[in-house]
Design a protein around this nucleic acid. Structure first.
Lengths: 344, 344
DNA sequence: ACGTCGAATGGGAGCGCTCCCAACTTTCGA
DNA sequence: TCGAAAGTTGGGAGCGCTCCCATTCGACGT
């Protein structure tokens, strides 16, 4: 069934071959293939038959050359080795994007950028206009990669924004509400000395989660103490380290809200090491609802963010942007919700 | 003059533009760009200067059309929603492949195939010869996707093989040795009623791991009892279910070797539910050494397989195969090792 | 001095497709 | 009945690149 059987000695069948077999001109075949109007039913049938018989599949490169579209989009993940593997967040994004794209003719190019060399390669790549649009996740405040992408003028959609005045389109989850509800929950449990372990401060999501933490505290009339805020970088080690610091600085804390599940897992480990019981002594809440949250001991209470849906929304937004390049940029905020397990 | 591009906006510079500026012919520029021999130093310098001045980047589509190479490879992951996200194995493979590919000019196309529709789309895609080669992981015994790929005749490298007489090139980890050493370890601990929870039987890796289990037992003079073998599908739920079954069927078991960390996590949950202590009552060993293995309670003893290296090796093999299409297929086996933590 | 040979070079001929327009056919109103 | 409008159709002109061949040029041998 694959075109091999139909081979007329030559290589793969071309438009021209189909035209010849169907007894029509190239133009007509092209119109049929692209679903354009203005083809008589008679001609259309003949062409469709010829296509089936020959097993014709249009040549992407030729089409690309003629239309100067690439029929592909790039998903750029600018992260170091470990994060991609350890955070299922990325895998979910990929899945969402891929599933949305599978409805279209667009191909998904995956580009991981971690080294300086890879960044330079990316520059050449984008300049070569080999994609019609770009998706990018995990953007830091003044990420050179993001600036590179922005400077190309290609339709772009970010997962997460760089700041409140992000000029590009983006899809974000409700970090403020998520953090807020996590801390509300902790307060509702009667905890009053609630600490937080933040993500890297050059990421807007981290800052907004801190803000959510602040607001929940303030609304409850609990003072925000700088000593209760420690910083991490989303990794497990950083969470462990931050928790250890907090424990020294504020021995009386009774809860901690962590900006990622990974950090929460690290924090739990630090707590366990010094013999604090979870949640009896210290309640712990994470952020992401990654698979590991169900495997910690005790299972982790965490803020779920719909990462696959995020990927899907990003793809959808990008498609719109590619279709109507002029239009102003848009943003989508997806809601989060608290998954209560046993750690808080 | 073409009204579209050459008008005022003056699109990206072409080979011809570079040639004009450098005062040479198209052929010479092409030679320089492709690093071909037979260009005088003088001409080469002039061309390089012109390229820099114009910021010329070759058009991939045009090159593709002329050479009928795609300069891209596809990584196909035929899996259902959840596995991609829950198993860091895939993320590691992706990273390995991407990092190896970043040394080349090849692009990485990611193709997730889970629905029937996506499979059909893949068929057209491959027939369109839009990639120079294919990488595929997680292949089941008579996976229609694998057969589809094989039938295209494209250079292909599998991650894992379909059977012992796999005709395609593949990279595999030493499943036999891994399983063997896991069970050895259990036996060395004095356990004598060692159960196993297998992966899906239509995957060769599962069968080989069972074989490793068998051999270790036989070598130690311990009888292999069918009742101690339960089947799962690599997922956590299946592990939990299988463990529950085993517990009913063989209440006296004192150890279990699981063919994946995820299943081991499920098994641990099942054990905990019925109050069996780990490892005191039942020792548990997993397979993969995924990040979650460090977060279970207690931390899991497991067989590490070098998944990123696996991705890298796959890419390397594919490059060779693309370069020398005629040559016979090759295989690479990567060794595994046991990571002893606290569950066994 | 002249012929010879290899290195360097320019440019024609496509690769397979889309775009677009001229040409042809059919239909319909006057 | 005739012309105009509408509906179809074929195919030329590229898109930007590589491949390859004919040509040019300089260096060398005799």
């Amino acid at each position: 069934m694959s075109s091999r059987s139909a081979g007329r000695g030559e290589g793969r069948p071309t438009l021209e071959a189909v035209a010849a077999l169907a007894g029509v001109g190239r133009g007509t075949v092209s119109r049929v293939v692209n679903g354009a109007a203005g083809v008589s039913p008679r001609a259309r049938t003949a062409v469709e038959q010829a296509i089936a018989e020959l097993g014709y599949v249009p040549n992407r490169a030729a089409r690309s050359l003629a239309t100067s579209r690439a029929d592909a989009v790039a998903l750029i993940i600018p992260e170091t080795e470990t994060r991609l593997a350890s955070e299922p967040f990325f895998a979910s994004i990929i899945r969402g994007v891929a599933s949305e794209l599978s409805e279209t003719e667009l191909q998904l190019l995956l580009i991981l950028v971690s080294t300086e060399r890879e960044r330079r390669r990316l520059a050449g790549f984008l300049d070569g206009r080999r994609v019609d649009g770009v998706l990018m996740v995990s953007v830091h405040a003044d990420d050179p990669v993001a600036e590179l992408v922005e400077s190309t003028g290609l339709p772009t959609v970010l997962g997460g924004r760089r700041s409140e005045l992000e000029p590009l389109s983006y899809v974000n989850s409700d970090n403020l509400g998520g953090a807020w509800s996590a801390v509300r929950h902790l307060l509702g449990l009667g905890r009053r000395r609630v600490a937080t372990i933040t993500g890297p401060l050059d990421m807007e999501a981290s800052c907004v989660r801190i803000e959510g933490y602040r607001r929940a505290l303030e609304e409850a009339g609990v003072a925000v103490e700088p000593g209760l805020i420690a910083h991490g970088d989303f990794s497990e080690e950083s969470g462990e380290r931050a928790m250890a610091e907090l424990l020294v600085r504020e021995p009386t804390l009774d809860a901690v809200f962590c900006a990622s599940d990974l950090m929460a897992a690290g924090a739990m480990r630090a707590l366990r090491r010094v013999g604090r019981r979870i949640p009896t002594d210290v309640a712990v809440v994470g952020f992401d609802d990654s698979p590991l949250a169900r495997h910690t001991e005790p299972p982790m209470t965490t803020v779920r963010q719909p990462s696959e849906e995020m990927g899907r929304a990003m793809a959808r937004l990008l498609l719109e942007e590619i279709a109507a390049p002029g239009r102003s940029h848009r943003q989508i905020i997806l809601s989060t919700d608290l998954v209560v397990r046993e750690s808080a």
